[in-house]
């Protein structure tokens, strides 16, 4: 429960003390837990970030779910089913983490369904071929892993713990995707072409998952000060590129960036400029599959209402008939 600011010098002193205690915990790497005092801004930014993360997991089930019925083998099908199931689970862990900050599931879903809360725009891109599923597992989950490993050290306890659990499950996603890309890349000319095409379409959006450049990121400096964010967008993006380029080389596929080049002096890959116009168009507008994603999500929720109501009615009836302790 956050204490309200009353026009009273004692409560201002108390608030300052509480804020200092909060900042001391941050400095000493002591996790902030749900019942701890925290600044309003900290609470709000975490609700926004954790919930957007949760929404992304749920929406992300759609582009991948798209290929479950058309997976080329039973092994690929059950693997993809398991992955999509995991994403749902990740959404569940994250909603629970967000709710510890004093917001309901109902409110979070309302905000998503009414467009008042966002999700990662990478999931607005269509999955045009089977190779897209491989590219997503390899690149999108790969980028998510880089981000999520960093977030395992985030200052808010429930979020950090959710990240640890998610990271354990996520690495199968990336390996599954890379295995698919490998099979295609070593296959027929058509398969190689399909894999290359998927890489061409998913590379830049994956880089954009890390968000705007540090210099243009409005949320970043406060997030870093509160240790919500532990590494900058550019730092994480660079790490992702550095670890992924050798993986692409092994596939003998070409990353669609002619400026990509190992820089010995920096100890990192140099890379080309990101087209931010495309990023903002995807984030701000209903382009690509944004409308479809939202419609599908809202329909799924509405169509399931009778099930939720029936379950509740049945539970009430049963507890009315037989008293439980």
């Amino acid at each position: 429960m956050v204490s309200r600011e009353l026009p009273n010098s004692q409560s201002e002193i108390d608030n300052k003390e509480l804020e200092q205690q909060f900042l001391d915990k941050i400095t000493e790497e002591i996790k902030i837990e749900p019942k701890d005092w925290m600044p309003d801004g900290y609470r709000k930014t975490l609700i926004r970030q954790i919930a957007q993360h949760a929404h992304s997991e749920i929406i992300g089930m759609q582009p991948e779910g798209n290929w479950i019925t058309r997976a080329p083998t039973l092994e690929r099908k059950i693997g993809l089913l398991a992955k999509v199931q995991d994403e749902c689970g990740h959404g569940m862990y994250l909603y629970c983490a967000a709710e510890t900050l004093g917001i309901t599931r109902e409110e979070l879903l309302n905000r998503l369904h009414e467009g008042r809360m966002k999700y990662s725009n990478i999931f607005n891109y269509p999955t045009l071929t089977w190779a897209d599923i491989g590219a997503i597992g390899w690149l999108v989950d790969g980028a998510a892993i880089v981000n999520q490993i960093s977030l395992c050290r985030t200052s808010y306890g429930p979020y950090a713990r959710a990240m640890v659990r998610i990271c354990k499950e996520e690495s199968f996603h990336q390996r599954q995707g890379y295995a698919m890309m490998f099979t295609l890349a070593k296959g027929t000319a058509n398969q190689v072409a399909m894999a290359q095409d998927a890489l061409n379409r998913w590379w830049w959006p994956s880089l954009m998952m890390f968000g705007p450049h540090d210099s243009e990121s409005s949320h970043s400096s406060q997030s870093m000060a509160w240790k919500v964010k532990r590494q900058s967008n550019d730092e994480l993006r660079q790490r992702f590129i550095d670890i992924t380029v050798p993986q692409a080389d092994h596939l003998e596929l070409t990353i669609p960036d002619p400026k990509l080049n190992w820089n010995e002096a920096r100890g990192h890959y140099d890379f080309g400029a990101i087209d931010w116009d495309e990023f903002w168009a995807a984030v701000n507008g209903p382009g690509l599959c944004g409308d479809k994603r939202m419609k599908t999500r809202v329909n799924a929720h509405e169509n399931g209402q009778w099930v939720r109501e029936a379950a509740w009615a049945y539970a009430r009836k049963r507890s009315g008939g037989h008293r439980t302790a």
Binding site: Q85, G89, Y93, C96, E169, A311, W312
Partner: peptide, 21 residues
């Protein structure tokens, strides 16, 4: 972790699906 369910048997089933995959 935690989860929402209408009653105890559902909570058990959901827990199995969510936390013991």
């Amino acid at each position: 972790g935690s989860l929402y369910a209408a009653d105890a048997p559902m909570a058990l089933g959901n827990a199995r699906d969510l936390y013991t995959r």
